[in-house]
Design a protein around this nucleic acid. Structure first.
Lengths: 202, 202
DNA sequence: AGAATGTTACTGACCGGTACGTCACTTGCG
DNA sequence: CGCAAGTGACGTACCGGTCAGTAACATTCT
């Protein structure tokens, strides 16, 4: 009873015990991100993790639930990183907004970057009822409101407009990265955001 | 010999003969776009098209080649639409650039819009050697240079920078559409592009 | 006649998912 | 103490179904 709650709780409480469930979880998250959900079968996950299939199904109700669990962790991790980056920038509004933008610019430059896990899965999982989709929508909505909050601190007249504009540029950089890599249009992300902010500050 | 060339040539020359190959091609293109490459099997394609599996493999060497053929047609169609829209706008540089932007804004509003076929497949097909990937890269590179050409006509100092900025906004609108729909941040696409153009015109 | 298509049946690999046996370790009890 | 029963974690072996792809042959249309 309450099978997959175990695996999630362990991660939440920070217990570092290496169980079959955690090995499966970590392996699946890596494989799903690198190669996609549908391209990775459960056999490959358990093989790579060095465990067996029943261990997967004892910890997670189904492959879909494993996907959702991986997405939840990715979302939590991503949001935490943003919070830390912004908090570290202090209290000056422009510095806080810049910190968020630099955070994404840094991620784009990482050699193993392969797009936003949420976006990738959203494209791959078109079925509306999939448990992973609610995670994705929640994550993206929270990110949007985070940016709105930062632009409101800036004191511009149209904070929502600027926030959505910046979000489009960030998401565009992530999207074009799949085809052009980090040296393509994504390279213009920071300059474009700066121009947008300056335009709204007038 | 040269199996799948037939199906492509027929489409290229505009011959409207309804063959098993064209039915397969049209059905596959629709299903691939709506549901994704990996989510659609060859059995479903031939069933939906009202033909049989051997007919598919008589016209196309493999499923991957069918995918590549569909992408080629999507790329050609998309580029033609852009050319037509820009040409219709006349010779005034700003009007021509606006025509391109409005073209994408219109596509985003269509109820059956499900993102850019190229981007979606690029995410789903991470294997570098896939025949579809060269189509995607060619299409996106051409689109990028089209925008650069239009911004150069505008006479701004940093034409490439503006072009990449606009590309990021467009791609961002397409990307966010998967999660937020047309009424999310994508709704700010035109206003953001305008702000960017004005900033570069100063 | 001959080209295009359909029919049927099949392959081997892989898919997500499960019934059941095994092992180590704890717990209760005389 | 000693020993059996219980408990949880794990693996072996398997299920039915679906995947992409093919061979051989019959049918239809022009």
């Amino acid at each position: 009873m309450a099978k997959n709650a175990d695996a999630c709780d362990e991660l939440g409480t920070g217990s570092a015990k290496i169980t079959a469930a955690t090995k499966i979880f970590d392996t699946a998250r890596d494989l799903f991100y690198r190669r996609g959900i549908r391209a990775v079968g459960v056999d490959e996950i358990v093989c790579e993790a060095g465990v067996t299939k029943p261990s997967l199904y004892r910890a997670f109700k189904s492959k879909d639930e494993l996907v959702a669990a991986c997405l939840r962790e990715s979302a939590r991790e991503g949001q935490e990183e943003i919070e830390v980056a912004v908090a570290k920038a202090g209290s000056e509004p422009r510095a806080r907004l810049d910190a968020l933008l630099h955070h994404f610019a840094d991620k784009l430059r990482q050699p193993d970057f392969r797009g936003c896990a949420m976006n990738n899965v959203a494209i791959e999982l078109s079925e509306p009822g999939h448990p992973g989709r609610v995670v994705i929508e929640g994550c993206k909505t929270e990110m949007r409101s985070t940016i709105v909050q930062l632009t409101k601190e800036l004191g511009v007249a149209n904070a929502e407009g600027l926030a959505d504009g910046l979000l489009l540029v960030i998401e565009g950089a992530i999207s074009t990265h799949h085809v052009f890599g980090s040296q393509g249009p994504a390279h213009s992300m920071m300059a474009t955001c700066d121009a947008l902010i300056e335009a709204h500050l007038r």
